[in-house]
């Protein structure tokens, strides 16, 4: 497929996943506030840190309040990672690959965009934010469902899944990092009395609460980290996402298992291997924050390599074709 098209599909998918995750962060925080006695600012600032846009936020709004954070993360078009920015860029990407994706996918991307844009014009969201963020998640799920049932399992599908899985791995790692830092600033705290409500909220923002319960019952920080990083079966855990991403990358190139033919495959393979042979005690000993920092760096390098390998193919100067006879007309 065309490099430009692959690029657009990859980013369309990443942007939608990003929008969904922003909605998750905000929604959980809103719920948490109902149960919490923490000062308002202290509750909302970590959200901005999770999104990685603290400097931009402070320049535009100064103090973190419920209203300012919601506005910045949801509708602010000056923030490239706001829900509105993500969904509208996903839609522009979808528009540029309409002939590749199914019409149903395009219509859904279009519908999703109009929903957010219309919400941005009204004030209704501040009256019932929970309903709004739930609908953002559902629109994103609907897009996934439509994609799963209408798109052929060929190259476009795999670029789409690759983008989605890398984005999801990144977001799960961010939310874990920030929450962990605030909930458990020092490794010495491990084992001390913990705030069960906060930990449950962390799991909920990754839709992981019930699934965690089935597997581990009691909530301990270590087990939560274990579940979100290393669980092989939970679809939002980092390990799971990267495993699936690797599957799609191999499907794109046709490279056999346990081998690599380009830098993207090499880097992703190294990261998956690392996770496959890690355990949570080791990670905690090294420091969770340090571990996640390194992980995010590697995710960025994988993204760079995907770009280099598939999207930015340099002009060919040598002979790419066998000599041709003059075909005439």
């Amino acid at each position: 497929m065309l490099s430009r098209v692959a690029d657009s599909i990859y980013w369309m998918s990443r942007s939608l996943e990003r929008a969904e995750n922003v909605a998750r962060f905000i929604d959980v925080n809103l719920n948490l506030m109902l149960d919490s006695e923490v000062l308002e600012g202290a509750q909302w600032r970590p959200l901005i840190i999770t999104s990685g846009d603290l400097a931009l936020f402070e320049a535009r709004y100064g103090e973190a309040t419920k209203e300012s954070v919601i506005r910045f993360l949801t509708f602010d078009t000056a923030n490239p990672n706001s829900i509105l920015s993500c969904v509208s860029s996903a839609r522009e990407n979808a528009r540029s690959v309409r002939e590749i994706i199914s019409s149903e996918m395009w219509e859904q991307a279009n519908r999703f965009y109009h929903l957010i844009r219309e919400a941005a014009e009204g004030e209704a969201i501040l009256r019932n934010p929970h309903a709004f963020y739930t609908s953002v998640k559902m629109e994103s799920h609907l897009f996934d469902g439509i994609t799963g049932t209408t798109l052929t399992r060929s190259e476009p599908w795999h670029f789409l899944r690759l983008g989605k899985m890398l984005e999801r791995a990144d977001k799960t790692s961010r939310i874990l990092d920030v929450k962990y830092f605030f909930l458990l600033p020092s490794p010495d705290w491990v084992g001390s009395a913990i705030d069960g409500v906060q930990w449950a909220a962390l799991l909920r923002s990754a839709s992981a609460f019930e699934m965690y319960r089935k597997r581990h019952r009691r909530i301990t920080p270590e087990k939560v980290a274990n579940f979100l990083i290393l669980d092989r079966f939970f679809p939002r855990s980092i390990s799971f996402c990267l495993f699936v991403a690797q599957e799609s990358l191999r499907a794109i190139t046709g490279t056999p298992e346990n081998q690599y033919r380009n830098v993207a495959e090499q880097r992703l393979g190294q990261l998956v291997a690392r996770l496959n042979y890690s355990d949570i005690e080791e990670i905690m000993k090294e420091g969770l924050h340090e571990f996640i920092d390194a992980l995010q760096l590697q995710l960025n390098r994988i993204d760079d390599a995907i770009h280099e390998t598939f999207f930015a193919i340099p002009k060919v100067s040598g002979s790419a074709f066998p000599p041709q006879k003059n075909l005439g007309q």
Binding site: M1, L2, R4, A6, E155, I313, K315, A320, F321, Q324
Partner: peptide
């Protein structure tokens, strides 16, 4: 997306021209 290579018109794909 299009380039002329060796006197032929080609498009850039994920698998080369």
């Amino acid at each position: 997306d299009l380039h002329v290579v060796d006197g032929l018109l080609t498009m850039r794909t994920t698998r080369g021209p």
